[in-house]
């Protein structure tokens, strides 16, 4: 069984290769089709035609497109994502620093979101039409209909500006702290690893508001999906049989119904995760969070080709990995599901 699983994992990775090649070609072409002219932009306000031409040559943008592509792929094969002109840093370095920031925020938000959404969804499904069900509906509707930047600003206004409970919205750490030595890039984990609980506390205080903002937004799909899947599972034949056989209520609910309802929930979770990671740019902007969403948007605005390509490629790889993980999770939850089926 384990060998079979390994083989399927390898074959899934192999299947991802054409996808990645496609992403590389498409992002290269799409960035070149952007209407802006990076040479003119980066030459600065007072540049003349000659200095723009000098910069175009320096950036290698005067060469034919196919030549630029060959250079790009050659660098890529050596693991070099190029140099971002707008931030002046190598794209790989920048992404390696920013991706953990986004991942830490998104994962914590999803954890929070799951901790609320799953029990809420189960509660709503077991008592449809009850007060709990209506409360669930109100919460998720509010969560999804308030734009994240609004929730974020409102939370900052109340908890920082009015009450003074939350720290200043200044990114991942207030400036009196040192960044913990980098192991995972997740400040909460890195600080815990060396036992620096002051920094850990500082990092936690910074992350709470943005994580809650994102969690509120991601609550809705998870809670609704849990409720729907649980309702379906609870009305299915095997649950009726289990009940008829006199199994305990908790066994029926969790072992039979919830495990079966988990598949669509996991699928939703995967979708919400990848969506949030790319789309939390508004939250990042509001909380000055140095994540990849704001990096990508800033790069796009100034036609910073290398940065945009690096971002899309990273997201594509992440997405492939995520799908693989979810597929593996399926087989763990439900042994009937095979990769080939």
């Amino acid at each position: 069984m384990a060998a079979g699983r390994l083989r399927t994992v390898v074959s899934r990775v192999a299947q991802a290769i054409p996808v990645v090649i496609g992403v590389v070609v498409v992002t290269f072409l799409l960035t070149r089709m952007l209407p802006g002219d990076p040479a003119a932009y980066f030459a600065g306000a007072a540049a003349d035609a000659q200095s723009i031409a000098e910069i175009r040559t320096a950036l290698g943008l005067d060469r034919p497109l196919h030549e630029q592509f060959v250079f790009y792929v050659g660098d890529l094969l050596q693991g070099d994502l190029g140099q971002s002109i707008s931030t002046g840093q190598p794209v790989a370095v920048e992404l390696a620093r920013r991706l953990p920031a986004s991942l830490e925020l998104t994962l914590l938000a999803l954890l929070l979101s799951c901790a609320v959404a799953l029990p809420l969804g189960i509660l709503a499904a077991t008592r449809p039409g009850s007060l709990a069900d209506h409360a669930c509906r109100v919460l998720v509707t509010a969560g999804v209909s308030l734009p994240t930047f609004f929730t974020g600003l409102a939370l900052i206004y109340v908890f920082y500006y009015l009450l003074g409970w939350a720290p200043a919205p200044l990114g991942r750490l207030d400036f009196v702290y040192l960044e913990p030595p980098r192991v995972t890039g997740f400040f909460l984990i890195d600080a815990a690893l060396i036992g620096d609980w002051q920094t850990w506390w500082g990092a936690l205080r910074q992350i709470v508001l943005p994580a809650v903002t994102l969690a509120l937004f991601t609550l809705a799909p998870l809670a609704r999906m849990t409720r729907a899947a649980m309702l379906q599972a609870l009305s299915s034949d095997f649950v009726r049989t289990a009940r008829a056989a006199g199994l305990r209520r908790s066994t029926v609910l969790y072992t039979y119904a919830f495990r079966n309802a988990l598949l669509p929930v996991i699928t939703t979770l995967g979708m919400v995760f990848s969506f949030t990671l790319g789309a939390n740019v508004l939250v990042e902007k509001v909380f000055a969070w140095p994540g990849i969403g704001s990096y990508a948007v800033d790069a796009l605005v100034v036609s910073d080709y290398a940065a945009v390509q690096g971002f899309v490629l990273t997201m594509a790889l992440l997405f492939v990995a995520l799908n693989l993980l979810i597929d593996i999770a399926y087989t763990l939850i439900d042994p009937r599901i095979g990769f080939d089926g």
């Binding site: 600003l153 500006y161 200043a168 200044l170 990114g171 400036f175 902007k285 509001v286 000055a288």
Partner: peptide, 21 residues
């Protein structure tokens, strides 16, 4: 002198009004 980048203008305003910067 510490120069902090805060993209959101309302946050910059809140920070200076509260005297944190």
């Amino acid at each position: 002198v510490i120069v902090r980048e805060v993209p959101n203008p309302s946050n910059r305003r809140a920070l200076v009004v509260r005297g944190d910067v």
